[in-house]
Design a protein around this nucleic acid. Structure first.
Lengths: 203, 203
DNA sequence: CCTTTTCTGTAATGATCGATACATAAATGT
DNA sequence: ACATTTATGTATCGATCATTACAGAAAAGG
C-alpha cells in the first residue's frame, strides 16, 4: 500500500503553516488565493488538490493554529496548582504570544472572521465554536477550583470565565493596535486585580 | 446662493446612515458596493457623486457612528461624579449599546477593519486612531480623579485606562458571539471588581 | 513495455469587485 | 427661450475574485 501516482513536490504541512500565517495576518476574506499560493509556493491546482477549497484550507489552518500556537496558553491553564495562578499564567502566556514580533499579533481565532455574512457561514461558525470551547475550558478550571475548596462555593464561575475570556479577546485587538508586551502585561495585572473582588481571596 | 442643477432625489444623511449599518454589520471589506447601493436605495453613480468613493463613504459613516452611537457611552464617562462611577457607567452603557437587538452587535470602530493589508491603509489607520482617542478619553477621566483627590496619587491611570479599553474591545467580540445583555453586564461586574484592587477604594 | 494514478504548470472560466462613460432629466441663471 | 449645472439610470469598464480544464510529467502496478 505505497503511494500511487506522481508524488507532490511540496511539504503539505509546511504549506499549511504558510497558509495559516496568511490567514492570521489578513483574515479569511482578506486573504486572496493569490496571497495564499504565493506564500505557500504552489499553484492553485495544487492547493485545491491538497486541501479542497479556500474554506477547507482555512479550517485546517485554524486547527493547526489551535494545536501549535494555543498549546502554551492552554497548558498553562491546566497545569498551574491553583485556579488563580492558572488564570494569571493563562493571561500572561496570552500576552506573551500576542506580542511576538516575528508573527502576526493577536489571535487567529478571535480575529480571523468576525463578520457573518461575508465569509461563508461555516468559517464564522467554526471560530465561534472554538471561542466557546475556550471559554468552557476556563469555566472548567474555575469549577475545579471550587470543587477543590480553593474558591468559595458561591464563586460565580460563569461570570469569571466570561470576564477573563472577554479580556483575552480584547487583548487581541490591543495587540493588533501595536501594544507592547509590557502594555499587554499591564492589562493582565488589571484583570488579575479583579480576582480578589470576585473570589475574596488573594492567592 | 441657492443650489444649482438637478436636486438629488434621496436624503444624503439617511443614505449615509444606511451605509453605516451595512459597514457595521459586515465590516469594510465585507461590505460590497452592491450591498451598499441596495441598502441606500441608490445607484452607484449617485453614491460616487455624493460620497466620492467607498473609502470616503466608510470614513463618513464612522464619523456618523461616533457622533450618534457613541454619545451615550462617552457622555456617561464625563458626567458621572466620581471616576469609579464614570468607568462603571461607561461600561454599562457599552453593554447596553452592544446588545441592542435592532442593530448590529458590537462596535463598528472595534470590528470594522482589523486587518491592515486588505483594507486600504487609511481605513485601518482611522479606526486605530479613534480607538486610541477612546483610550485617551478614559485616561483623562482617570487623571481627573487623581487630580481631584478621589484616587491615590500613585494610581496608575495608564494601566487602568488600557485595561478598561481592552475590556470594552473584548465586549465587542463577545457581543458578536451573541452574548446577552446580562452576560455583558456580568463582564462589567468582573471588570469593576478590579477597581478595588487597582485603586484601593470601593466608591 | 503499457496502463493507471496522481501531481504540476499554464491558461482560462464565470462571477463579482470598485469605479465610470454616457446620454438624459431636472433644476437655476440670464 | 436658452445655456449652464448637477443628478439619475443604464450599461459597462478593467481588475481581481475563487475555481477548474487541460495537457504533460512522474511515479507505481501489471
Amino acid at each position: 500500500m505505497t503511494e500511487r501516482g506522481r508524488p507532490r513536490t511540496f511539504d503539505r504541512t509546511t504549506a499549511l503553516r504558510r497558509a495559516m500565517e496568511v490567514f492570521w495576518a489578513k483574515g479569511y476574506e482578506g486573504a486572496s488565493m493569490s496571497d495564499l499560493t504565493a506564500a505557500m509556493g504552489i499553484n492553485s491546482p495544487s492547493l485545491y488538490a491538497a486541501f479542497g477549497s479556500k474554506e477547507a484550507l482555512f479550517l485546517e489552518a485554524v486547527e493547526l493554529y489551535t494545536q501549535v500556537e494555543g498549546t502554551d496558553i492552554w497548558s498553562a491553564l491546566e497545569k498551574a496548582p491553583t485556579a488563580c495562578q492558572a488564570v494569571e499564567r493563562f493571561l500572561r502566556q496570552t500576552a506573551k504570544a500576542y506580542s511576538q514580533t516575528d508573527r502576526p499579533q493577536g489571535c487567529l481565532i478571535a480575529l480571523g472572521a468576525l463578520h457573518q455574512d461575508s465569509s461563508r457561514g461555516a468559517i464564522c461558525d467554526d471560530l465561534r465554536r472554538r471561542r466557546a470551547e475556550n471559554r468552557a475550558a476556563l469555566l472548567r478550571r474555575l469549577e475545579r477550583g471550587v470543587a477543590e475548596g480553593e474558591l468559595p462555593a458561591d464563586f460565580d464561575c460563569r461570570v469569571a470565565a466570561t470576564f477573563y475570556a472577554t479580556v483575552q479577546h480584547g487583548m487581541s485587538i490591543q495587540a493588533r493596535d501595536g501594544a507592547s508586551r509590557a502594555a499587554l502585561m499591564a492589562t493582565v495585572a488589571g484583570a488579575m486585580a479583579a480576582w480578589k473582588g470576585m473570589a475574596g481571596t488573594d492567592t
